[in-house]
Amino acid sequence: MNHLDAVRLLGLDAPVRPEGEGYGQVVPEDFELLVRALPQGVIAGSVLLGGADVPVRSLEDFTRDTALRLADMREVLGSREQELWLPLHPRPRGMVTWGRTANDGVLLWDTTVADTADWTTVLTDTDFQFWLDLPFSASEFVARAVTGRAEGTPAFETYQEYESGTFWKVADDKRATAMALANRDIGAVEEIVTRVRSIGVPGVRQYAEELLGRAGESFGALPEDYLAVMREFPGGVVAGVRVFSVSARPGAPGLRRLDEDGLFLQWGEVGGRAFGWLTAEDDPEEWRVAYVEPDGSALTCLEDQTFATFLRRRLRGDNSLF
């Protein structure tokens, strides 16, 4: 997937690639060419590219307008005592912002590898509680948003068109989300799923379902609350909890058996501790969250916590491990 594919999906004419060097040296070339090809506006009612003079000459210049947002992320995560699996810019190989969502989420690059062509996307919500780890370039992310958009949503709108059109649908969705989350009796699964969906980028759910499909029956029956969440959440971080993808891609962790007898099924980690379930019970609905210390010295079972209730507890500010 390259920028030409994304531009064509948007129904726009793709310009000829400019002569000269400099593209792809500081940030991915496909992003720079997308910015050059697209007028300013909203993609699939949800995605807004960061403005930039291209080719980008330095990360300092590129990140200047988003430095305060990155500072907000660091402050919020620190106040919650939450960690990510990746640092934030300007730390070495830190995540760099490249766009935002109509719901005030942020799009970033995972810059772990040196070659900018291999940078992938991380998507976070407006509260910095959900961080979605996505193996997509900017072009593929845009293309998936366009192909996954709801019927009737324009592929591309100028800001003026958006404000008189799709904006009102986005506003209605925000109100519906607020009303759902205000319900004191909301269940753990419904709360998490509602919050993931509120990020509002089409294509994410389809990718999460792809991952579940790839996993197939590799692990046998799994708890229903886990499956319901992972149909929406493709992996990343929830309230400081690293939640592995149900189907790992090369070089990334995934759902896995941690011990030789297969009784501990790991779905994530917190602070170096392996989190998962003890699967001695035949019925997955009886499985409860457990964790193993980093040195393997002890195993603790949270006998009253399922996957979903544990994540909700974290989302509500309770970071205890007991």
Rank of each mutant, 00 (worst) to 15 (best):
D5C: 07
A6K: 04
V7E: 13
L9G: 00
L9T: 00
L10C: 10
G11I: 14
G11T: 12
L12T: 00
P15L: 13
P18A: 03
E19C: 14
E19K: 15
G22L: 10
V26P: 01
P28A: 13
E29W: 11
D30W: 10
D30N: 13
F31Q: 12
L33A: 07
V35E: 03
R36N: 02
L38R: 03
V42G: 01
A44Q: 08
V47S: 00
L49F: 13
G51A: 15
P55D: 11
V56G: 03
R57S: 14
R57W: 07
D61V: 13
R64Y: 08
A67K: 00
R69Y: 01
L70T: 01
A71Q: 05
A71D: 03
M73R: 00
L84H: 05
L88Y: 02
H89A: 08
P92V: 13
R93D: 09
R93C: 09
R93A: 14
M95N: 01
W98K: 08
G99R: 03
G99I: 08
R100L: 07
T101K: 02
A102N: 02
A102Y: 07
A102K: 02
N103F: 07
V106G: 06
L107P: 01
D110N: 15
T111P: 03
T112C: 01
V113L: 15
D115A: 14
T116Q: 06
A117L: 13
T121V: 12
V122R: 05
T124R: 03
T126C: 05
D127G: 03
F128K: 05
